[in-house]
Design a protein around this nucleic acid. Sequence first.
DNA 1: TCCAACATCTGGTCTAGACCAGATATGTCA
DNA 2: TGACATATCTGGTCTAGACCAGATGTTGGA
Lengths: 236, 236
Amino acid sequence: MNDQNKQYLQIRNQLVAALAAERFKAQSKLPSERELSERYGCTRVTVREALMQMEAEGLIYRRNRRGWFVTPPRLVFSPTRKLNFMQMVDEQNRQGETRVASAEVVIGDADTCCELMLVPGEKIYEIIRIRSLEGRPVLYEFIYLSQSRFPDLLDQPLAQSLTVLLQDHYGERIAREQIRITSATIDPRATEALEVLPGRSGVCIRRCRLNPKGEPVERDVEYWLSDAIEVQVDTH
Amino acid sequence: MNDQNKQYLQIRNQLVAALAAERFKAQSKLPSERELSERYGCTRVTVREALMQMEAEGLIYRRNRRGWFVTPPRLVFSPTRKLNFMQMVDEQNRQGETRVASAEVVIGDADTCCELMLVPGEKIYEIIRIRSLEGRPVLYEFIYLSQSRFPDLLDQPLAQSLTVLLQDHYGERIAREQIRITSATIDPRATEALEVLPGRSGVCIRRCRLNPKGEPVERDVEYWLSDAIEVQVDTH
DNA sequence: TCCAACATCTGGTCTAGACCAGATATGTCA
DNA sequence: TGACATATCTGGTCTAGACCAGATGTTGGA
């Protein structure tokens, strides 16, 4: 079967053409699946194939039970540059927003304590933040720090740059990071805030941030919508 | 609807349990969709939902029209370390293989010439390699280099490390790299070799490799199966 | 033994419906 | 005006089939 004989690819092509013709703008809503299936004279199954194809291409995204929307440009995320989220966002002329979903003291799990070189079961901060671009939530991050090392951290303004806070308030500087990037399913705790169904895949970035002495200071586990980000790294 | 009431998640859970019970090993084939639908008393559509869920989790993968298979562990890929592919593979006790799919002189496209700082339309080498782990093709890479800078390159052994070749034969050393990582659909030229359907998403890594003077030497565009790789970067 | 023809098995695509649950808009009443 | 109940709209899940095309295995014949 020639690619061009696949109905869902024909529908995809027509929708792409419509998008290119700027009849739709970033974040605008596509017609409903039922409406598209009528328009193209096929079943919803086939329309959904076309939409999921475009989703895989990063052209559109879905908000759970709300509809399909046009994907905005990716944010270029450069962990090697000493820029915080808001600086990156500004530099790329985007509108960013950070919301602290929760901030509390928890018992560290084995992984986190190991990464932070703490004794298993030690108390640590867990800060959960949600970051949005032009109103679209794109990042759900878990931040872990030692409680004893950073007393009263939860009284600080946590929606701002943690790097700056650690430096200015605690005199702790981040010198380098170990970063691991994988494609993975989005953490179940993050799906609702990111408006995706449980089980959908995204980009997982785990960071262990070290001070100049090489001691681990902070552990980050970030779940990004996969169409929202391009990671850029300069090595030397 | 509670998650546990979703039939496809129940099927997923049973299959995961079966995998965990080691009734299946890495790269082994799952029963066919029709057989599973009989076993679980549902339609193929529902079985496919369960399988696609597990695919998103990186537990299984499909080979186009051949069936579903258990995913082997990810390869940890560390672009910052000065290790070539085979060294990484050995270090992780994997069996790697490199095949040169094509190597020829082409007219450089705008992007590539720009990245390599060549005049648009200049002749460049395009080397296409396929890399496999335990027989499973996981990486399709396009390599671009200036023809004039590296005469007779195509007469060299191209399945081996290019870094070593450039250094030993041409005295050109790679000092640093600019790396961009995104989730993207796999290039149509790569889908057949990677045994995936056109339009499926994977991990795209684009690298621009520079010599100590900061001059671009080599451009890589790599398409990885998304379940096959974890990128690890150390910054300072 | 080797290769070509053929049959079978696989996932890929598609129809034509149905019902569900969450999101949203609407309308009513205090 | 503001809060709440309700109707409607959305995508999410599922049935019960069908046919297609590529991958693979089998079978004969040279």
